[in-house]
Amino acid sequence: MAIRATTDDLSFDGLPKATPPPVRDEAGDEPSVIEVRDLGIRYSLRLTKKNTLRHTFINMFTKKDGPKDFWALRNVSFDLVHGQSLAVIGPNGAGKSTLLMVLAGILTPSEGEVSVRGQISSLLTLGAGFDQELTGRDNILLAGAFLGLDHREVMERLEPIVEFADLGEFIDAPIKTYSSGMRARLGFSIATSVDPDVLLLDEVLATGDAIFRAKSKARILELVHSAKAIVLVTHDMGWVTEFCNRAMLIERGNVIMQGEPEEVVAVHLEHAEQTKREKLEQIRRYGGVAPKIR
């Protein structure tokens, strides 16, 4: 049982596992697929506010008080080896999605180091790069190029993607004529067409109509089984215990606990319950008026 407030040293050897982790000695026989060391992500509040030159000048002359930085994540370290799937849980705004963004390479660490080995696929990308004027088919090529796949690979996958998206004639019509469900279907088909070594999942899984939802769930399960490592961010505790053999609880950018899914989920639920009680208590104290949430 490893409950740690700090994450200086995290070796999970000796933990009982559904799939026992490969023994790691000092030489490192089994290279970890994901390696995160002392990761910290800092947002500069100065920069993230919508900036104009005017504000910069004003800020230059008036030294405003208050925090200039905000750490979305701090002191996060973990290793994920072949065959492990990690569930990241925690309340809203804890930094779960930020962690996924770092693993996907979208954010660069302000502190520490991250390395991911192998083909990464994040299902964060449902249709983000679509160009309204291009046809569905052209958009598949464009998305492939954005994902950095080489041309041959994209051409090989083109037909399976078209088939899975099941858009009929619309595949050769501009995306702007699509309904939002059709767009999501195409996005999902592209995002899941790669067989990744590392799969990053945020809960974006409810797309399209019932038939497509069933189909997409099956496809995700397929990916989950073939991927070497999975990181899943979710609020659905069912997924955590069903698919993951490790879990991590994050609160306010800090790792509270890592370990067995059941145990971490239990702690998370307990914390959530406690927060709820506190909120209710506060509401009662302020005479039925909900306090401002910080």
Binding site: A27, G28, G105, P109, V114, S115, R117, G118, I120
Partner: peptide
């Protein structure tokens, strides 16, 4: 950091990023 043996099947890091610029 653990060195990766040459015989390992794992591909070179597809992605590595650190706070060092």
């Amino acid at each position: 950091m653990a060195s990766i043996p040459k015989a390992s099947k794992a591909a070179a890091p597809a992605y590595r990023s650190s706070s060092k610029r």
